[in-house]
């Protein structure tokens, strides 16, 4: 019985992303915008672009996740859906995790899947490393959405909480951004970094739901 609010939260988050016009396309547009503007800003030298490309994509991914997060819990607080889910006795942490996961599926995963195209625009070599990088972006994006979800849940009752979410999420994004960029740097330390990235994402998956759950119970009061 207690599984159904979790499923309904998950399903609602998925439909939310596609309803109301291009919710899921917004981060994609943000991501593409960043990827196109950077060469215009820093110049078109292929070696420079190849060097900064993976890092730019990490930054764009982190910022793109912030763009969607402002609304992920606010709507549920406002329309009372959150109260209904919590009344069923379902664990708030699981509901929150389901929503964060659904938003990663609709907004984070597509960016990771499209990352090879942007990498090619940054003059990356077309080989299997693009696929590995795709996996790393997906993994890191999951951590972004879960930590960002903590900021979103904490500021769910705050009108115009976007700045607050960014401020809260920024320090929490640091390990993922560092491990992710290191893993792609090809320099020393790039062999261990994917493992650290996976470990820090697991850490986010283990810790963030409880923080989100506690914050949602607070928002529902």
């Amino acid at each position: 019985m207690s599984a159904s609010p979790i499923l309904s939260a998950f399903r609602q988050a998925l439909t939310e992303a596609w309803a109301g016009g291009a919710g899921a396309l917004m981060p994609l547009g943000f991501f593409a915008g960043a990827a196109v503007l950077v060469p215009l800003g820093i110049g078109t030298d292929p070696d420079t672009l190849r060097a900064v490309g993976p890092g730019i994509l990490w930054v764009a991914l982190a910022l793109a996740s912030l763009v969607t997060l402002e609304r992920i819990f606010q709507a549920d607080v406002e329309d009372g859906a959150l109260d209904l889910w919590l009344q069923t006795g379902a664990p708030a942490s699981m509901i929150a995790a389901a929503k964060a996961f659904a938003h990663w599926l609709t907004a984070g995963l597509p960016l990771a899947i499209l990352s090879p195209i942007f990498a090619l625009m940054f003059q990356a070599k077309a080989d299997t490393s693009l696929l590995t990088h795709m996996g790393l972006y997906a993994l890191g994006g999951l951590a972004f959405f879960f930590w960002g979800g903590v900021g979103a849940a904490l500021s769910a009752t705050v009108r115009r909480g976007g700045l607050l979410i960014s401020l809260i999420a920024l320090p929490l994004y640091v390990p993922t951004a560092i491990f992710g960029a290191l893993a792609m740097s090809g320099g020393p330390g790039s062999t261990g970094a994917p493992l650290f990235l996976a470990a820090s994402t697991l850490f986010a998956l283990a810790v963030a739901p409880f923080a989100m759950g506690a914050a949602l119970r607070l928002a529902a009061d």
Partner: peptide, 25 residues
């Protein structure tokens, strides 16, 4: 008080990880 406490605790358990990643970087 509640929101602050949640954030302070989340931050505190992340401090070692942040420190480790920055050290590695």
């Amino acid at each position: 008080a509640r929101a602050g406490a949640i954030l302070a605790m989340v931050g505190a358990i992340n401090v070692p990880l942040i420190k480790f990643s920055v050290d590695l970087f």
